[in-house]
Design a protein around this nucleic acid. Structure first.
Length: 349
DNA sequence: AATACATACAACCGCCCCCGG
DNA sequence: ACCGGGGGCGGTTGTATGTAT
């Protein structure tokens, strides 16, 4: 791009790790004068550094309000939850974690949480069960092991690991079966116009509608892997949007967002987002679906300490983007038993 | 003890957005 | 309305430290 670099490349500015002396100069200057223009700061502070480098050093390391040290389980849950809603918007996630920087959260995600989710069979990008071939192959092994577990532990108290294995295997069974069902449905919808009643809100079968189907598939996944599923194996109960909004009201994270930042005023004003933007942002957080419960990821809390976030975990809802598929959703909501889907398949095949 | 490998995290880079002129 | 600069963001790299062989 034609854009000029933020710093004069010919100036032979220092790069790499900061020395304690440089840190002191930077801290002393900002303490005395504020950072002002980052571009002019290095010269004024007597630093042979790029202004951008100074800004990063300050915001990520030297700022006095930075909380250092290990992330707590609560912070872990918040990060996973926010990432499921916001994606890699590290600065926005950081806005909900006072004292944590976007860089720190990003590093924590990339080095720890991401691997943790992968290990648990969750796609860290989508926060849904992994569906890549390799993982499905692994799941096939889980299927056989799950039979073993189910047969041997049916009358005994199972361990969290066994529960996890059962869930994974169960999820694989149901996931594959439902994909098959939906494929059959799609086949019929595209070939049989008599089903147009069901699809009256669907303009045509195009990529966007396929996306809608995909969304509903994801709803299944959320149900399969969600908290309710863990609490009540085999009892898949969709949550209506109203219930979700209620759940949001009771969302401890939503309250902590304001509560956690009351100490520093509105808190968010430190970010570049304007108040309006933040409003939209928070609104989006509330409106967007809880794609998958975060609690199960934490392992220890998911099986033993499940009551603390129960309202939140029930908040598995449909994506706003799938509103076109209200009929689909009705279909999904009516799914009270496997026989229901068997009937559909028999009807459509 | 030496080496290889893994992990954590600080720092950099390039792009994008916002805002003022 | 357009343009350019400043600042912010997300992705990536580099380096220090820890762990296994």
């Amino acid at each position: 791009m034609g854009r000029s670099p933020c710093c004069d490349e010919k100036a032979d500015l220092k790069k790499g790790p900061w020395t304690p002396e440089e840190d002191k100069k930077l801290v002393d200057y900002i303490t005395a004068h504020g950072h002002g223009s980052w571009r002019s700061l290095p010269k004024l502070a007597g630093l042979n550094r790029c202004g951008k480098s100074c800004r990063l050093r300050w915001t990520n390391y030297l700022r006095p309000d930075i909380k250092r040290g290990k992330f707590s389980e609560e912070e872990e849950r918040i990060i996973i939850h926010l990432h499921s809603v916001l994606g890699n918007k590290w600065s926005r996630i950081a806005a909900h974690l006072p004292g944590r920087t976007d860089n720190e959260i990003k590093n924590f995600w990339n080095t720890y949480l991401r691997k943790k989710l992968l290990h648990m069979g969750i796609d860290p990008n989508t926060h849904k069960p992994r569906t890549d071939l390799n993982h499905l192959l692994n799941l096939s092994q889980l299927l056989s092991s799950s039979h073993l577990i189910m047969n041997t532990t049916s009358t005994t108290i199972s361990t969290p690991l066994e529960n996890a294995l059962k869930l994974q295997a169960d999820a694989a069974h149901q996931y594959m079966a439902k994909i098959q069902m939906l494929q059959n449905l799609m086949q019929v919808m595209t070939s049989n116009s008599t089903i147009s009643n069901t699809a009256q809100n669907i303009e045509s079968i195009n990529p966007s509608t396929l996306l809608g189907v995909q969304n509903n598939l994801h709803i299944f996944e959320g149900q399969i892997m969600g908290y309710d599923q863990i609490q009540n194996l085999g009892n898949i109960v969709p949550v209506c949007p109203n219930e979700y909004s209620k759940a949001i009201d009771m969302n401890p994270w939503a309250s902590s967002e304001s509560g956690g930042r009351t100490g520093g005023g509105d808190g968010v004003d430190h970010q570049k987002n304007s108040a309006d933007d933040e409003g939209i942002h928070d609104q989006n957080i509330d409106q967007l679906p809880r794609l998958v419960s975060s609690a199960p990821f934490t392992g220890r809390t998911s099986f033993s300490n499940h009551t603390e976030n129960k309202s939140d975990h029930s908040a598995i809802v449909h994506s706003p983007t799938s509103t076109v598929f209200e009929d689909w959703e009705k279909l999904m909501d009516d799914e009270s038993s496997e026989s229901y889907w068997k009937d559909i398949i028999e009807l459509t095949s």
